[in-house]
């Protein structure tokens, strides 16, 4: 698949995020204040379906529909996950993005 075609995936993802209130400051504030649990449901369901979908792709030999290798690898452990994660979370709360 040519790299420019990924713009279509990006547009699809942007459309779905927008329809899902993932880009809505009030939804993000509600998640962190525990007054609106919508985003917890979105993230949880997205993880479940992604896990199922990626598992099926792996079972199918980890090949794309055109026979290329699927480059979906587990991110290796590193302590930055903790400190960078806390910093990111702070920014997420401030900007809602």
């Amino acid at each position: 698949m040519h790299w420019t075609a990924f713009t279509l995936f990006g547009a699809l993802f942007g459309f779905v995020l927008s329809r899902s209130r993932v880009t809505d400051y009030n939804a993000i504030a509600g998640m962190f204040r525990l007054t609106d649990l919508h985003l917890f449901g979105v993230i949880g369901a997205a993880i479940a379906i992604s896990a199922l979908g990626l598992w099926i792709v792996r079972r199918g030999g980890n090949r794309t529909v055109t026979g290329q290798a699927v480059e979906v690898r587990r991110k290796p452990w590193q302590s930055g996950a903790i400190w960078g994660g806390l910093v990111f979370g702070a920014g997420w709360a401030l900007s809602g993005a």
Partner: peptide, 13 residues
Amino acid sequence: WWVAGPAIGLIVT
């Protein structure tokens, strides 16, 4: 959420 989450999972797949 039950439409949004699965839609995101489908895009990931």
